[in-house]
Structures are given as C-alpha cells and as structure tokens.
Design a binder for these strands. Structure first.
Lengths: 134, 134
DNA sequence: AACCTATGCTTGACACGTCAACCATTGACC
DNA sequence: GGTCAATGGTTGACGTGTCAAGCATAGGTT
C-alpha cells in the first residue's frame, strides 16, 4: 500500500510538471476534460464532482478558479434553480487541445517500461483493490 | 495512470478513516513512524522530509503540529546549529502503539482480495513505474 | 396553503503539497 | 581573518481535500 501511494504521487507530480507550463493543475485539467466530454449540454456542479476523485465541497472553489480564468462558464439552471450548470468555454477547449499531446506523451512515458500485458495486469489488480474497498 | 491515482486515493482515504479516530493524519502518522524507527538519536528535519513523499517546505509545519500535540520534541543541534533534531515523545509512542493493530488490519483488508502472488506482482509493477520515472 | 425532508450547492476552518524567497550557519578558498 | 557559495530550515502565498454547518429550492404530505 505504501508503494501504491508513493508511486501514485510520483506519477501525479510528473503529470503536474507537464501541466504547470500552461498554468493549470491536475484537478483543473480533470474538470475541463469532464466538461469537454459533456459537450453543449453542460453539467451541474455536483455531477462534475462525482466524476472526480474528491468529495463535493472542494469542487465549488475549483470551478471558481476555472471561471476566473474564463475557461468555464456557469449559469443557474432555470428548471431546477438549485442546480448550477457549467460549460467549458472556447478558451478552455483551446487550453485542453494544446495539452492533449503532451499529456498523452507523459502517459506513454510513465508506462513505457511495462509491456502491454503488464499494463492490463496492473489495471486488473488496481480495479480489484478499488472494488474491494467498500 | 488514472486508475493508479484513483486507487491510491481510495486507499488513502480508507487509511485516513482509521487514523482520524486518534485525531491524527496520514502524514503525521508517517512522521511518527519514521521517528520511532530513528530511536533515541533523533533525526534532523530535512532527513525526515526526504523519507516522506513530499518536498521539504511542508515538513516544518507538519512537525509544528506534532510538536503542538506534544508527540514530537525539537532541539537545535549543538554541533551544527543549522540543523534541528527531532525526537518522538513517550506520548507519541503511545499513540503509535494504539494504531499499530488497526493499521495492520486496514492494510490486510485493503489487500484481502489479492493472492500473495498478485501482491508481489503488483509491487513489482509499481516499483518498475517508480524507477522508470526519472 | 403550511410544513418537512431531501437535494444542490456554498462557506468556514483546518491539514497538506509546492514554489519562491529568505535567514542563519558552515566550510572552503583566498 | 574576510568573503562566498552551499546547506538546513522557515515563511508567505496559493491550490486542493475534507468535515461540519448553512442556505435556497424542490417535491411531497397533510
């Protein structure tokens, strides 16, 4: 378990270094990816949160910062005024696009020492741990 | 890589839940473990930091909190007045002791779904990723 | 219509992790 | 002995994870 956490941190930092050149953090990147996937219909705040690693409260402030950088647009939903819908902006899409390749490279680099078989085995083991942790 | 980070977070939170009953965090627990291992001779601040996951600056404040709870004692080293030596206190040892068993159980639980062979394979894969990330 | 619980955030407070800048002490070199 | 770079730590600022508490809106129930 120690090894798992250590390795995850090493990998996290290595992705972080790629992202910091665009002035974006890993979590902000994740949110933008999720919103790009959601398309024009946008997503309510907590729906984004539920697709991320963290618990809900942090997501509000995370999106605050993305909105401040004009990468995300927010609007209260007219049908259910409790919800706040979020969309990625054109600027946000641009940032993501410029990161797609470097991030794919980083991913390749991080796993370059493993064979295809190793990778699928690793995924299976990790999934098993995650499923079992309830 | 996503799976790795997700799984690590799940595991981190699960250990966190065990520790919070003693009012201690995972990082604080790590520091105490390191200091227990160091014994009576204590360790300089940055030496502790280098054995942890994080980079140096955070370690000062981490130990500040441990000192505030009287689990750690600090003293400027007389031979090299730049260094600050740290020791775990008796109270700190007590806290650790009360956590040894619950933490071992949590570790077992987290990995109970894997065979011995799976575990050593997982360790090998994780080590390979870590070694390759330089 | 009045009430009540659930839902969807948001905020405040605190623990980190990380970078950049800074201070003190050492040790080496001139 | 005086200067200077290196070492060991600390601080400030900012992003994030998490808990507890709070607020507004929805959707029943009566």
């Amino acid at each position: 378990m120690l090894g798992l956490m250590r390795t995850a941190d090493v990998v996290r930092r290595s992705f972080g270094r790629v992202l910091e050149e665009q002035g974006i953090t890993l979590q902000q990147y994740n949110v933008l990816r999720i919103l790009r996937g959601a398309g024009d219909s946008g997503l309510p705040t907590l729906e984004i949160g539920s697709r991320m690693i963290e618990e809900s409260p942090g997501i509000t402030r995370l999106i605050d910062r993305l909105e401040a950088k004009a990468w995300v647009r927010r609007e209260r939903c007219p049908h259910d005024r409790r919800q706040v819908l979020c969309w990625i902006t054109a600027a946000g899409l641009g940032v993501l696009e410029s990161l797609d390749e470097p991030m794919a490279d980083a991913d390749d680099r991080a796993l370059s020492m493993l064979s295809t078989e190793d990778k699928s085995h690793l995924i299976r083991l990790l999934d098993a741990i995650r499923v079992g942790s309830r």
